[in-house]
Design a protein around this nucleic acid. Structure first.
Lengths: 354, 354
DNA sequence: CTGAAAGCGCTTACAG
DNA sequence: CTGAAAGCGCTTACAG
């Protein structure tokens, strides 16, 4: 009251209508693409709107159209640069479709059920769950409500919810073949969160490659996709009387931590004393201090697939589970001993194709 | 139609009212804390709500209360881990206040005017602009509309918009003093985006320290807060006939790039051949591969201040510009030559206090 | 404590 | 092409 600016409430379509001397419906039509309105009326409305500083109220529109143009994104592990990169790409692509992102963080891979109520209260048009998932009851509820859900970088057992991932099993297998071809004789795996599909699939593929070569011994420790846990796991593994010659770390984020421990706590030279491979091809993997040999997760393609699924199902109203698994590529850098064959140069990268 | 699950529209308060045998108002009251309703009625309503799977429609509520409980967050530079960390802390604190985050990315430090329309259409209760800002006309518009805006990690010339930053000038000065005490004889500065307040303030402080010691020569190149640009800036500076002995890089994100270039392209040993200091105390600065001597930006305190300003102004309706500049601490690691005195140990960190 | 009613700012059949 | 009117799902004076 005293001294402050008096709060002015936002201009409404009725005020614009008065100003332009038309009906409120006409104002609405002027802002609705494809609505039946003469160019002349439209111009008059837009002029008045501009003069008054009118902006359509998206909230009121949502109430009547049942379309909020909001997508809920639930995302954890933001300290892993993979996710900020995904978030930025997601923001870009959704903005291009005139959708907006309501972001929920902090639900690390456990079910995201606790935020579900919040999400539903805002009547979002779709849900993207990155590195997390929903219980099947809630997935079912979304389905019935006609709200498409896409799991990003995760799948569920029951396949009832759409998902977009990399071909994790194939990726793990390829890394196994790469290390085998490099002539390593003992292997370790530093796991991500143990019951996450991503972790399981990468491990399964890795094991497949090893057993095809008659190797069944595999030293496993768990890093839970967290830096601190990965450090602890690395210490355990590197303190072993006969430590593995090669370690597959379930993602690059943890691989960085493992390399730091190996070098600075155990004085090991990476690739000479110990080979490390990771997964994701995230920023630090490309930095020369690390140079991690890794399998890519093609963010642009993954995000594109995610948004496509959402847009299709929003448009059609038909919710059905779609599963996209995009192939990754093994990028060869300096963190692991090289095989004699199979490495080829392709647009600036060295990749491994056995 | 054919084969798909029939879409069921969400349950409304009227349906709950019918089921519970009360009025629609009663249902509303049952979900409004502090509303006048008997415990008995409330219990009956909640039971029916549960039975039907009712969730209040936040959109409809917003329309009538004029409170969306949504905060718009505009954020760029997500590849700099400082920002994901901020985003996560912001999410946590806003969720605790029962607010939600509508995220807009991709507006790197230029004015965020292009998204402004979108933001306003959703009738957000407040706006946080991280590493970006608004033109003064739009800031003014927010003020008049009673929507609080806080600049995060930036300030504007005109001081008309609230801001939360670290004491950047003091931080830059402290880094200058530290390097001077280390006995370096020539200096460089790799700048962030040149007309950003953060960059200007850090440079100003740095220059103050240098000139107090009679040093006016300062080699400057610009990295625009981007890794690629910082690499290019580093190459230019390190190719100089007599390159500086010490370089202050405007943030850690760029300092990492500069260290990589210095080591892997110029074969320099960091701190022996070249001292580097940064700003932010971001993840990689703490990793042993880098160990960057840097000034902290205390994320928790900065976010707390930001949310406090927002909550206060939303509650009071009084919008006034508040400027918080939180002191940082110089954390001493291995990337720069050490001064003989002034380094003290404090809860696990070595800090510099001249 | 409770219900009937008005109204938030829009979209969209409906009739002309 | 245009306007009057209904209605989206809530909250909140108002009267009892």
């Amino acid at each position: 009251m005293d001294g402050g600016v008096t709060k002015r409430s936002p201009v409404t379509s009725s005020q614009v209508a008065d100003h332009a001397g038309v009906s409120q419906s006409a104002v609405s039509r002027a802002f609705t693409p494809g609505a039946s309105i003469s160019p002349k009326t439209r111009a008059r409305v837009l002029a008045s709107a501009k003069a008054l500083g009118y902006r359509p109220n998206a909230i009121a529109r949502t109430l009547i159209t049942n379309r909020s143009r909001i997508i809920a994104v639930v995302m954890a592990y933001l300290e892993n640069l993979f996710y900020p990169d995904v978030l930025e790409e997601l923001g870009r692509r959704l903005a291009a479709e005139n959708y907006h992102v309501l972001l929920f963080t902090g639900f690390k891979d456990r079910d995201s059920d606790p935020v579900f109520d919040q999400i539903m209260q805002y009547r979002v048009d779709g849900i993207i769950l990155a590195s997390t998932s929903l219980s099947s009851e809630l997935s079912e509820e979304c389905m019935v409500a006609g709200i498409p859900v896409v799991l990003f970088n995760r799948t569920t057992e029951r396949d009832e919810t759409s998902s977009v991932t990399t071909q994790n099993r194939e990726g793990g297998k390829l890394l196994g073949q790469f290390l085998l071809a490099g002539g390593h004789r003992s292997y370790g795996y530093i796991a991500g969160l143990e019951n996450s599909s991503t972790n399981r699939d990468r491990l399964t593929g890795f094991r497949e490659a090893l057993s095809a070569a008659g190797i069944v011994d595999l030293e496993i420790r768990t890093g839970n996709f967290s830096r601190v846990d990965a450090e602890a796991a690395a210490r355990e593994m590197l303190s072993l009387p006969n430590r593995p010659e090669a370690i597959f770390v379930a993602n690059d984020h943890m691989a960085v931590a493992v390399m730091d421990v190996a070098r600075y706590e155990y004085g090991l030279s990476i690739s000479r004393d110990l080979s490390i491979v990771g997964f994701d091809n995230v920023g630090p993997a490309r930095w020369p201090s690390y140079g991690i040999t890794t399998v890519t997760q093609p963010i642009r393609q993954m995000v594109e697939a995610t948004v496509d699924i959402l847009m299709d199902q929003i448009a059609s109203g038909e919710i059905e589970a779609i599963h996209k698994a995009i192939p990754g590529e093994l990028i060869v850098r300096e963190s692991a001993r090289l095989p004699a064959t199979g490495i080829i140069e392709t647009n600036g990268y060295r990749v491994y194709r056995p």
